[in-house]
Design a protein around this nucleic acid. Sequence first.
DNA 1: CATTCGTGGTG
DNA 2: TCACCAAGAAT
Length: 367
Amino acid sequence: MCHSQDRTPSEVGRDLVQWFLENQRDLPWRRDYSPYGVWVSEIMLQQTQVAAVVPYYLRWMKRFPDVPSLAAATEDEVLLYWEGLGYYSRARNLLKAARLVMERFGGRVPDTEADLRVLPGVGPYTASAILSLAYNRDVPVVDGNVERVAARLLDLDVSAKSPEGRREVLRAATQWLVPGKARFYNQALMELGAVICTPAHPKCLACPVAARCLALRHGTVENRPVRSPRPRWEELRVAIGVLRENGKIYIQKRPEGGLFAGLWEFPGGKALEAETPRVALVREMEEELGVRVKIVDKIGVVRHAYTRFRVTLHAYRCVPDPPGQIVRPRACAAWKWVRPSELDLFAFPAANRRLIQALRKAADAGS
DNA sequence: CATTCGTGGTG
DNA sequence: TCACCAAGAAT
């Protein structure tokens, strides 16, 4: 009765679970599926690849092994442990959420959808991920992997992000779910998307459910899921200054909300059209700090690509001219003069951190 | 509902 | 070098 063309959909789930149990990657958060560990890993994995997350996760869990240790930490230290991972509001929200878990849930990670969704940074995906991976509740998850895998298995001809596509993906993910095995089923779907059913050049020959993939049957795998065109990025020139006086360097903390919220940075800003970076820096220092500066020399150029723009960072050493001016920064949460060695105690955006490395390399070679 | 929020890997 | 984009959430 069970001819292979006409299996019930739940067998897709069963095949996926079996494949996962035999082929899963050895990842640190799969050791014991503790709710806190699952939570931390899921936040780190948002829009971030597994390979990038692993070292951060290990370091994080060593320093903040449980909810109480995280809740007791300062935001600056939390951001330092997040430095380089991007989307820094994730770290700030995780800290706020840990404190909320202490106050409201006695330090225990919630096990209901409603309670989880109270936590900042926990949306529909993460709530379902914690419920299914940590507590093995029978709820499906829908992330980018699940969207892609489902869009191909179903040969979905509308965007998985559209209302209709969303419904279809959720319906399929729910239908395939193997009761009692959501922890492995959900990870199987995501693992398949990450390892086999990849965006480009999927390895269909190694796919455990290729026999029931409609896109493969119809030759439309490369066109699923259907994508909307992406906007082009903007080119940006930024001048940045390492301002030094009495052996100390000026740094400032970015305000709440917006780009790099809560991180520290060197002062500077965008160069206007037809403005050289040097002129821009002198102008920005005057505007931002109320300080007239003299540029000593150029440290170097750092290229950096963000999602929406590409930045060429022109970095200069500079000093107050005349010396001894009072710094009056505008529009920053805090500011400090620090010794060069202290720069490691503050979280900087990646491009700033690379500038610090260049600074030290020059200092080592020069003097 | 569209935009904003980073970074590094990869072909 | 370049284009794409990865276990989303907040606004």
